[in-house]
């Protein structure tokens, strides 16, 4: 059952990802990406990473993609892509992607530890939310602060960049 779910969601995310690059309309691409992210989130949950899965949907599928769509709508340029089609970049991109996949397959074929099967988590272990929370606010307390500062800087940067008179 779980295996079947894996294949379903893996297919969903891969098809979604392909949809991103195949669709000419940016809006369609954005929706495909949301589909891919949902598939990914499902895979996370299948890996017992509930918090990460939820965050993936909330942050990526929600906030980030809304932002993308917002910008696309703002610019109103779905027609832009149709003007011309360059074979060079397409061929190069696909070739490199294929080479990369071939390399990946060969690496994974040699990776014996990769054939492990998932073990059940010990009964009565603390939930992932609790464990991640503890880690974040004890061991990784300082990085959390740094990331907070980073978000602040990003916010200010975005405001500065978005101002009209950008010379």
């Amino acid at each position: 059952m779980l295996d079947l779910l894996f294949y379903i969601f893996a297919t969903l995310s891969v098809v979604g990802a392909l949809g991103v690059i195949v669709n000419k309309n940016p809006v369609t691409s954005a929706f495909s990406l949301i589909a891919a992210f949902i598939g990914l989130a499902a895979l996370f949950i299948q890996l017992d990473a509930y918090l990460v899965g939820i965050i993936q949907i909330l942050v990526y599928g929600g906030a980030v993609m809304v932002l993308f769509l917002f910008i696309i709508m703002l610019m109103d340029l779905p027609s832009e892509e149709r003007r011309k089609f360059g074979w060079g970049p397409v061929a190069g991109g696909i070739l490199l992607g294929c080479v990369f996949v071939v390399q990946l397959v060969r690496v994974l074929a040699d990776y014996s530890a990769g054939s492990r099967v998932m073990q059940d988590l010990p009964v009565g272990a603390a939930s992932d939310v609790e464990q991640i929370g503890k880690l974040m606010f004890t061991q990784y307390y300082f990085p959390v602060q740094v990331v907070g500062v980073l978000l602040l800087v990003a916010t200010i940067g975005v405001v500065v960049l978005s101002k009209k008179e950008l010379d």
Binding site: I21, E81, P89, G93, L96, C98, F100
Partner: peptide, 27 residues
């Protein structure tokens, strides 16, 4: 049975698709 390699393969595949997209798309 789903193994680690399955997940890694999906991950790599998505990465490759993303890479191809970066190189192929113009928008």
């Amino acid at each position: 049975e789903v193994t680690l390699n399955h997940f890694l393969f999906v991950s790599g595949l998505l990465f490759a698709i993303g890479l191809a997209g970066v190189l192929v798309r113009r928008n």
